[in-house]
């Protein structure tokens, strides 16, 4: 009995982190209809920035989050305005390839700048753990989970209550109508991209704390985001959370009861099955009704 509870607990912790890593990808997909294959790079960029900041300033890596998010916000805004905007209204394949090209360039640049070595962020509590009854928790994973949940709530509130959030949602639902009502769609696209990049950066910090990372890992995080978004549905933090948690639980349950090397099989099997049964994701599509 303990084993299954422990497995579920591990899965939930992992899932919360997957959710944060995917939410930016989901937002871009929902609003711009662009599959951002450079998402994993943005995640890693956050991790590297946090590593540099926390070691030079000697502060807790989670405290670097505002600075990292600010940098990535600017990077994301510029990236969208200068590159993505030029391909956004053409075929979805074109914009997807564009982001892939950028991902390759940035991965190579990261190898030059940060070396291909694996790095890891190690705060003081990195290796602590605590017990709740018979279930033991990894302190760092739990604090990362909390950080992820807080960030997801912030994003949900931003989208729901702020003026920016209203405009983003309006653009996603009816781009043309939003434009007619005086929304500067290009600006909104860029802001959406900026917000997404900022959240990718935030998740990068969290990931950097719990897992070793290197420039070659970007593909993994893009792919994970893909799966989470398909599971949970496009464009909403709640969808990403559901998708992430589901993915986390399925991974740990498979690893425990089927075999440690099978989580990826079930992950992609689940992806294909869910696409067939409910292409709009478990929570449905938060923005556009049919896409």
């Amino acid at each position: 009995m303990n084993l299954i509870i422990q497995t579920l607990a591990d899965g939930l912790v992992l899932g919360g982190i997957y959710a944060l890593a995917a939410v930016g990808f989901s937002l871009i997909f929902g609003v711009l209809h662009v599959i951002n294959l450079s998402h994993g790079i943005l995640v890693l960029l956050g991790a590297y920035l946090a590593l540099i900041l926390s070691t030079t300033l000697r502060i807790d890596p989670l405290l670097t989050m505002p600075a990292v998010m600010a940098v990535l916000f600017v990077v994301g805004y510029a990236y969208q305005r200068l590159l993505i905007q030029r391909a956004v209204d053409r075929s979805p394949l074109g914009s997807m390839l564009l982001t892939f090209g950028v991902a390759l360039m940035l991965q190579n640049t990261m190898i030059w700048v940060f070396s291909p070595d694996m790095k890891s962020i190690t705060p003081g509590y990195a290796l602590a753990s605590f017990k709740l009854g018979a279930i033991s928790f990894d302190a760092v994973r739990v604090s990362c989970l909390l950080a992820s949940l807080v960030m997801l709530c912030c994003l949900a509130a931003l989208l729901k209550f702020s003026a920016l959030g209203r405009v983003i949602r309006a653009t996603a639902q009816q781009t043309l109508a939003a434009r007619l009502c005086g929304v500067n769609v290009r600006h909104v696209y860029a802001l959406t991209f900026a917000v997404s990049a900022a959240f990718a950066g935030a998740s990068g910090i969290v990931i950097g704390i719990i897992l070793p990372f290197s420039p070659a890992d970007e593909g993994t995080w893009t792919l994970n985001a893909f799966v989470v978004v398909v599971l949970g549905g496009v464009g909403s933090p709640a969808g990403a959370l559901i998708g992430g948690l589901l993915l986390g639980i399925v991974s740990t349950l498979t690893a425990q009861y089927i075999g440690p090397s099978f989580p990826n099989v079930t992950m992609f099997l689940l992806l294909v099955l869910l696409l067939l049964v409910r292409p709009q994701g478990l929570l449905g599509n938060a923005f556009a009704p049919s896409r």
């Binding site: 391909a87 053409r90 914009s95 564009l98 892939f100 090209g101 390759l104 360039m105 991965q107």
Partner: peptide, 20 residues
């Protein structure tokens, strides 16, 4: 040697922007 990923990426970007 340690440049070909970058070059391939650049090629893709230019392709999408210049000759869709």
């Amino acid at each position: 040697l340690d440049f070909h990923l970058f070059a391939t990426g650049l090629l893709l970007v230019l392709l999408v922007l210049a000759a869709p």
